[in-house]
Design a protein around this nucleic acid. Structure first.
Lengths: 234, 234
DNA sequence: GACGGTATGATTGTATACAATTATACGTGG
DNA sequence: CCACGTATAATTGTATACAATCATACCGTC
């Protein structure tokens, strides 16, 4: 079930294993290493100027993140992610983000609520300017706030896992402008439901928000997981 | 999000790392290593007659399973699991087992359905005899069948993760006789809903089944996570 | 020419040596 | 007596050497 100490992600920056891990993670998510490609310990070690040991340990972590698959005595391969996997993830996330929103309604702090409002406000601005990169970042951050606000480290961790998993699908061109706006409107509705302490509505909205994101992805035919078109904004 | 190649669990038996992993896993789940206890690489290596390397890699896998927590340059500690964690897990599982049952209604094979029926039939027998160990095993197996039947490797993996996580809570004395019978009755109802292709009912029943298991745990005051009383049948 | 076995190279698995970091204990100065 | 700094021991992090395993290519036999 993976690493439940989220603070390690920071600490890891200062170890070789951590740096290797982050580099490989980025390269896989960005599509540099393609699906089913084999990762060789020595090659990567040389490329990064480290020995095999930290590379091997980074491999275990990447396996932990679901990004690679290690076959004993054979090697490490970039994990394949099928269209069905993506669909299943969105189904699962839909339920869990709903639960998350419901819990957040009770537990959210004033600061978190304020950051949410700010996030939505900023996203409106960037949407009008067509700043897609910022929109994507704000979108990620909105969900992060929600995950933190539910005050459940188990749920938070699971959602983060799935969220990062689907980042592979919506790599670079992270959203169309129309979906970006619609998505932010949905964020606003969720935020307002939470603000009004209407847990049921928050749950239902968050639920639908994820399903809409998926619908949008499918509608735009963005099924080519590693293709350039892979996209979809939440 | 962890290791998505379930077959590795088998292969791992034949590597030192795999053996170390399984041994430590068992020792943690059985309570030999207690909460927040520090695991030292050399000590465990000596105890099992292996060097630090496979121990270190096993540690990464245990971290992956959520059983230990590795603090850089400090050490590995057995993960603490609070009463709230347990509650959250049951909440999450309730939703996901519901989804699982819903999907299984469509996807279940004849063989899987037959094994389910057999499972329930056998559990009735063992309940009448007071065979608690067999009841617990059949209970685990019932849920395993359900996980397989949903035909979603993402959902199956997540549910297995959570399921194994809570095994720590209901270690040895796995159920009271009364809950065992009630639990098996719920299994039967779920099975029948699936058999009749009533997805909504199956979802709702599976949902309630997990919540009941949790309620029962709480009612019996089985909150002492590592105490001898820790129990609860699903 | 096709099949099978063996040899060779490449790659991962493990052990160990060394470096870096952290915790502890002790001593010194205030 | 407390605070602080330094030295030392313990522990983890990394590099490298060696062993085991797997893939490939070559050669011989049928």
């Amino acid at each position: 079930m993976a690493n439940y100490d989220l603070k390690n992600e920071v600490n890891d920056k200062y170890s070789l294993r951590g740096r290797v891990f982050q580099k490989l993670r980025e390269d896989i998510l960005s599509g540099k290493y393609r699906e089913h490609e084999e990762l060789k310990e020595v090659a990567i070690g040389e490329e990064l100027g480290v020995s095999r040991t930290p590379v091997r340990e980074a491999f275990r972590q990447l396996e932990l993140e679901g990004l690679i698959q290690i076959v004993p005595n054979r090697g490490a391969y970039v994990t394949g992610i099928t269209a069905k996997d993506v669909k299943d993830i969105y189904m699962i996330r839909s339920l869990l983000e709903g639960l998350c929103a419901r819990l957040a309604t009770e537990k959210i702090t004033k600061e978190q609520l304020e950051e949410m409002e700010e996030n939505i406000y900023l996203a409106d601005f960037h949407a009008s300017k067509g700043h897609m990169d910022q929109m994507a970042e704000l979108d990620n951050r909105f969900h992060d706030i929600l995950y933190e606000a539910c005050d459940s480290k188990m749920l938070e961790h699971t959602l983060r896992d799935y969220h990062q998993y689907v980042l592979r699908v919506r790599q670079k061109t992270l959203s169309t402008n129309t979906r970006g706006r619609a998505s932010n409107d949905e964020h606003r509705q969720i935020m307002e439901a939470i603000k009004e302490k209407d847990a049921d509505r928050a749950e239902q909205l968050a639920n639908g928000h994820i399903l809409n994101a998926y619908e949008n992805m499918v509608k735009n035919g963005l099924y080519e997981v590693y293709g350039e078109e892979a996209a979809g904004s939440e």
